[in-house]
């Protein structure tokens, strides 16, 4: 028992010793903050203007379930829409729930596109959800989301 106590004491001392330098270092160099820090909920409200988006199967979000490298995650958003002058997809927004800036990209489409489709590659800081938010020409908002497991974070 004595031996165990000895190791416990040593362990606690070592832990305290390890924490103090880390803390002092952190105080010296503040953690860099994203230039446009924005939470997910704030970002959604900023896009929709307070309207609640409707979950829809019309929005097809294609993201890998497991992304080995968070720095390159392919995202494809496709919307089932005729893309005529009276009925078209106005905008496609790609968001992430836990990145320091939730907004990734806003794409403003026109009927000249012919097809509501957008594809790119994004960075994810950790395991989280990728959200595709779609604005229709009649003012409605559709949403689709999928969680992505990230093994190596890609931010910073």
């Amino acid at each position: 028992m004595q031996r165990r106590d000895f190791f416990k004491k040593i362990g606690s001392v070592a832990a305290v010793g390890a924490v103090i330098p880390v803390m002092s270092f952190a105080a010296d160099a503040p953690k860099p903050v994203s230039p446009n820090k924005m939470d997910y909920k704030v970002a959604v409200d900023a896009i929709t203007g307070g309207k609640a988006p409707v979950k829809s199967s019309k929005v097809k979000l294609k993201v890998p379930e497991i992304a080995e490298n968070g720095a390159v995650v392919p995202v494809t958003v496709e919307v089932d829409s005729p893309m005529t002058d009276s009925d078209y997809v106005k905008a496609i927004h790609v968001l992430s729930t836990k990145n320091s800036n939730a907004r990734c990209i806003d794409v403003n489409l026109t009927p000249a596109n012919g097809k509501a489709y957008f594809s790119t590659r994004i960075k994810l800081g950790g395991t989280q959800e990728v959200v595709g938010l779609v604005e229709l020409s009649n003012g409605e908002f559709l949403i689709a989301s999928q969680s992505v497991k990230v093994t190596i974070g890609g931010c910073g």
Binding site: A112, G114, R121, K123
Partner: peptide, 29 residues
């Protein structure tokens, strides 16, 4: 921009990957 008309405009934030790719569809006119 296609023939003087903006068909698609995008607002981009920093969380896009290095060497980004932007893919859309377009109607040839």
């Amino acid at each position: 921009n296609y023939n003087g008309k903006d068909i698609t405009t995008m607002t981009v934030w920093e969380s896009l990957s290095v060497n980004p790719v932007f893919t859309i569809y377009m109607k040839v006119n």
